[in-house]
């Protein structure tokens, strides 16, 4: 209902950003800058090239998951299964990569493919089941959370899979001009998602679906396939995140990723995307992921206790949503 909404949702076709769109993201951006300033003053280590590289690496997985989650939340859904799907995709890829008789390049290619396929299939399943029967995605993906986790444990026999080709591991810690390659992958993914959401017919309909499912249906568009597509994208990103996870840690653990879904949802919501759908942007999600990552990093540098850290993170999530509420009101009319 806000004018700001129009900027992100209604006029994606227009070239560049309008002032209001910038204003909208500016709130989150300012919060991020505020955090950065506080941490820079409080810790000499914070604003160093090394630490910046670290932060970028650390937010990568959450950013990838959050980009996929943005699609699902924009249509008014939720995907609680991404953490477990990540584990399943990692284990499947881990099995693939350790298949005997493969050269390193083949093994890596197979693993990447396996993780993407596993993630995508889980996403399709989430989408088809919830859209076909019109069931709340909260419940369906909660089911998938357990199915994928169980499958990951079953396939791996609850054991961590390790010993991947050296090349794969190298990719995990590769940097270009100080920027981690894995982060660049995430950034590229975010850019593509932003293009899709703001410049394509599909993106327009995703926003439309979150605002008014009936209006989209009556205009002759298939609501079913749109929903399936959103969940499929989310599953696909979980698969990509699994690959990054493996490359970074050089293991595939069936218990990987527990709780990742909540971090991804938090990034999306802090980024100003409405939980009821139809409103938000990938740019916001990017900033949201940064806020979570910077907070986690900075609070450790400050030497705050684990429990204080947890509390502060909780407070920041709530404050971000309250701020968003006011921003929505301010830009009204």
């Amino acid at each position: 209902m806000t004018a700001a909404v129009t900027d992100t949702a209604g006029k994606p076709g227009s070239k560049g950003f309008s002032i209001r769109a910038i204003m909208r993201e500016a709130g989150i951006g300012l919060a991020l800058i505020g955090l950065i300033i506080v941490f820079s003053l409080a810790s000499e280590h914070f604003l160093t090239a090394n630490n910046i590289t670290n932060i970028l690496t650390q937010i990568t997985i959450n950013l990838i998951l959050a980009v996929g989650m943005t699609f699902v939340i924009l249509i008014g859904g939720i995907d609680l299964s991404v953490g477990s799907v990540l584990a399943l995709a990692a284990v499947v890829a881990g099995k693939a990569i350790s298949m005997p008789g493969l050269g390193p390049a083949e093994a890596i290619a197979l693993a990447v493919l396996a993780a993407m396929v596993a993630g995508t299939l889980c996403g399709i399943l989430n989408g088809v089941v919830s859209a076909w029967w019109g069931l709340p995605s909260f419940i369906i993906t909660l089911g998938m959370l357990n199915i994928a986790r169980g499958a990951a444990l079953q396939i791996s026999d609850a054991r961590t899979i390790y010993s991947f080709p050296v090349e794969f591991n190298n990719f995990g810690s590769l940097t270009v001009w100080g920027l981690p390659v894995v982060f660049l992958v995430a950034l590229g993914l975010a850019l593509v998602a932003w293009l899709v959401l703001s410049r394509t017919v599909f993106g327009r309909l995703i926003y439309g679906l979150g605002n008014s499912e009936e209006a989209v249906r009556l205009a002759g568009h298939s609501v079913f396939w749109l929903k399936v597509a959103a969940f499929t994208i989310c599953g696909f990103t979980a698969g990509i995140a699994a690959i990054i996870y493996m490359a970074r840690l050089n293991i595939a653990s069936p218990i990987a990723g527990s709780g990742f879904e909540l971090n991804a949802i938090a990034a999306v919501i802090i980024g100003g995307t409405s939980l009821s759908g139809g409103r938000g942007s990938v740019l916001g999600t990017l900033l949201g992921a940064f806020i979570i990552g910077v907070l986690a990093n900075g609070l450790i540098l400050l030497g705050l206790s684990d429990f204080m850290r947890q509390m502060i993170t909780g407070v920041v999530i709530i404050v971000a949503v309250i701020l968003d509420h006011y921003r929505a009101k301010l830009t009204k009319g």
């Binding site: 914070f46 160093t48 670290n54 996870y245 990987a256 990093n297 540098l301 684990d306």
Partner: peptide
């Protein structure tokens, strides 16, 4: 310093990295 990483690899990776910075 002494911190929890909840028994988990990924979290331990992040926490250890940040401890090294600090």
């Amino acid at each position: 310093d002494s911190r929890t990483a909840h028994w988990e690899t990924e979290e331990a990776n992040t926490v250890a990295t940040n401890m090294l910075t600090a």
